[in-house]
């Protein structure tokens, strides 16, 4: 999902960047009519980008109409299977602790997997500078009253105060080549499941993301 989105969004963002650059040049040259038309084009492309993001949100909402009971352990297993190669390449491993007695959550399986996949991938990427023996991603889940909390915890650098304010801001990213939409979409998915996505720094270093969902 994230990759198609990246490709689709790249086009209006490219056009927007180019039109803005043309506008800058026309402004310096005092070419008023071309400046105005370039700025109009810029706005059209910004609008087009917004529509693409809106369509993704619409897609998320539509899917949540068809919710089912999902056990947490299989969701995590699917994600880890998908990311096997990635983990090997990054010389990291996962430690999973999910009690067998844990009940299921209500939700769309594909979307919930997408959220967990994003969190796991972020966690792995965050540990690129961590010494190899410390590259352990901890995934655990626990019931908390009528809710289930799924934690994805890494041993990366953690999240500093300035970054913390913008973690969920669309198009904010700390990765080179990143689009800055992953966590924003994850939170939209969590919220459309009447859940929540939060994060904190861990004692001993690293960050932990908590996906809070309701039990079925």
């Amino acid at each position: 999902m994230a990759l198609t989105l990246a490709h689709e969004l790249n086009q209006p963002l490219t056009a927007l960047t180019n039109f803005a650059s043309a506008a800058k040049a026309f402004a310096t040259q005092g070419n008023q009519p071309m400046l105005v038309s370039s700025l109009d084009e810029t706005m059209t492309q910004a609008q087009r980008s917004a529509e693409i993001v809106g369509r993704i949100r619409g897609f998320v909402r539509q899917r949540t109409a068809g919710v089912q009971d999902c056990l947490v352990a299989p969701l995590v297993t699917t994600v880890l299977t998908l990311l096997q190669g990635e983990m090997r390449a990054r010389q990291a491993r996962a430690a999973v602790r999910i009690p067998e007695s844990l009940g299921s959550v209500r939700g769309d399986r594909v979307l919930l997997e997408q959220v967990i996949l994003n969190l796991v991938l972020n966690g792995l990427q965050a540990m690129d500078e961590t010494p190899v023996e410390g590259r352990v991603l901890e995934i655990d889940a626990a019931a908390c009253g009528a809710r289930v909390h799924i934690h994805v915890a890494d041993r990366g650098p953690g999240i500093d105060d300035t970054t913390a304010d913008q973690v969920f801001t669309p198009f904010f990213t700390t990765k080179t080549g990143g689009l800055g939409l992953g966590l924003n979409i994850c939170r939209t998915i969590a919220e459309s499941h009447r859940g929540n996505l939060t994060f904190a720094n861990r004692p001993g270093g690293g960050a932990v993301f908590t996906l809070d969902l309701e039990c079925s």
Binding site: P12, A15, S21, M34, Q45
Partner: peptide, 16 residues
């Protein structure tokens, strides 16, 4: 093949 990308690039180059 993207009309907007094509036109924007054309305009950017024209402006220079």
């Amino acid at each position: 093949d993207d009309e907007a990308v094509r036109r924007s690039l054309g305009l950017l180059l024209l402006s220079r």
